[in-house]
Amino acid sequence: MDKKKINCLSSAISIHNLSKTYASGFVALNNIDLEIYHGEIFALLGPNGAGKTTLINIICGIVTPSEGTIMVDGHNTLTAFRAARSRIGLVPQELSTAAFESVLNTVNFSRGLFGKASNPTYIEKILRELSLWDKRHEKIVALSGGMKRRLLIAKALSHEPQILFLDEPSAGVDVKLRRDMWLMVRRLRENGVTIILTTHYIEEAEEMADRIGIINNGEIIMVENKAILMNKLGKKQLALTLQNPLSTLPSELEKFNLSFSDGGKVLIYTYDAQQEQTGIPELLQQLGEHGIDFKDLNTSESSLEDIFVSLVKEK
């Protein structure tokens, strides 16, 4: 989804001036403003303790905000909490389940809790999609970690929410299940569900998200369309494998800010992919002039992870 298209859409969640200070005095969130648009996949990235879960919990009604307002589809989460909450499904980070209850009962319980009449056909559909149908009569305590994670997703989807929060959905989940989950999330989005996920796996955000918000120390540092973010901040590197290892460089080459790796065998040049002039032809020409020969070269683009680490460090 491109930025233009997202901007044309209306807000599914609109957060203004949101702050949370815990009784201990710890400021978990500080003056957050954030718009999440209908039908997008929004990834909230941040280190441990950045405030991701607090933000989600406030939107879902589990934690009380100290200041600010949140509107879900135009409904205030405090004054019109029924309308706001009935639109939201939450998959929490912790695998909290009623251990001795059966899979089917606990999913039906969730649907009822959110004010929906029972619908066995729909519940069967989601349990089948999540490969839990065969386990429907099993007690939850007998399920594996991956199954419990899928069960929490089934519970969150049981009342047909229009907005789905996935708090660290991939924690403790194997690669295959993670891929399956990504497919499911995409399918949900195709059906018009807005998805907000928090993750440690930057690969996940890179793979899935339309837009990315970066949160650190309770503040949103940046919200940007993923492609633009990567373009804007993406650094490219050119690595030259030298014929003969070097330890120093001629002073004329200092302006390129070159660095060595692999014991002087590889020369690395970092440049901004956005610039008209990358400086590469000039560098290669000067290397030739100084008789520095190379036998191989390759370029690489920085990943979202690199961008993320550099942003969080800066702050």
Binding site: C60, A84, I88, L90, S96, S110, L113, F114, K155
Partner: peptide, 8 residues
């Protein structure tokens, strides 16, 4: 968490 986040 589920009860607290439900429209109830």
């Amino acid at each position: 968490y589920e009860v607290l986040s439900a429209p109830i």
